[in-house]
């Protein structure tokens, strides 16, 4: 990946207003993240009338759960079983969120902070890269 390409990606992240972008091509991977508060100016929604929707504030205080290794993402212990967690579910520290399998190494990912599952960023059975965002807890 050359510098020009990286610069383009940074511009893209800034313009779009998203907080994070991950691009993978072949053996190369790059993740561009920008701080949500302080430092970089944030886009303020035009219409700030009345209470902000719950989701908008959720992302602010969200704790992000990432994959510690590349592998396959599983939402349940085995095929056909109930998922460990569902969207909107309350989780406590130590609750299992998912399993990442890498070459028959099973890794139960547990919540490091209490919270509510605000987003599940990966579909069951999908491949994930190391450090990829799996869940957002609010």
């Amino acid at each position: 990946m050359d510098l020009r390409k990286i610069k383009k990606l940074i511009e893209l992240v800034e313009e779009s207003g998203i907080s994070e972008l991950e691009v993978k091509s072949g053996d190369e991977a790059i993740r561009i993240a920008r701080p949500l508060a302080g430092g970089v100016a944030r886009r303020v929604p035009e219409q700030e009338v009345g209470p902000a929707p719950a989701q908008a504030t959720a992302t602010d205080s969200a704790s992000v759960v990432r994959a510690p290794m590349a592998g396959t993402f599983y939402q349940a212990l085995e095929p056909g079983a109930e998922p460990f967690v569902r969207l909107g579910q309350r989780v406590e520290v130590g609750n299992v969120l998912c399993i990442i399998e890498s070459m028959k190494m099973m890794n139960e990912i547990t919540a490091q902070t209490p919270g509510t599952v605000a987003a599940i960023d990966v579909a069951n059975g999908e491949a994930v890269a190391s450090e990829q965002v799996l869940f957002r807890l609010s």
């Binding site: 510690p68 290794m69 590349a70 592998g71 890498s102 070459m103 028959k104 190494m105 890794n107 190391s130």
Partner: peptide, 10 residues
């Protein structure tokens, strides 16, 4: 590192 542990399986 946990990221490299898959290889341990082999």
């Amino acid at each position: 590192s946990p990221a490299t542990l898959g290889g341990l399986s082999l």
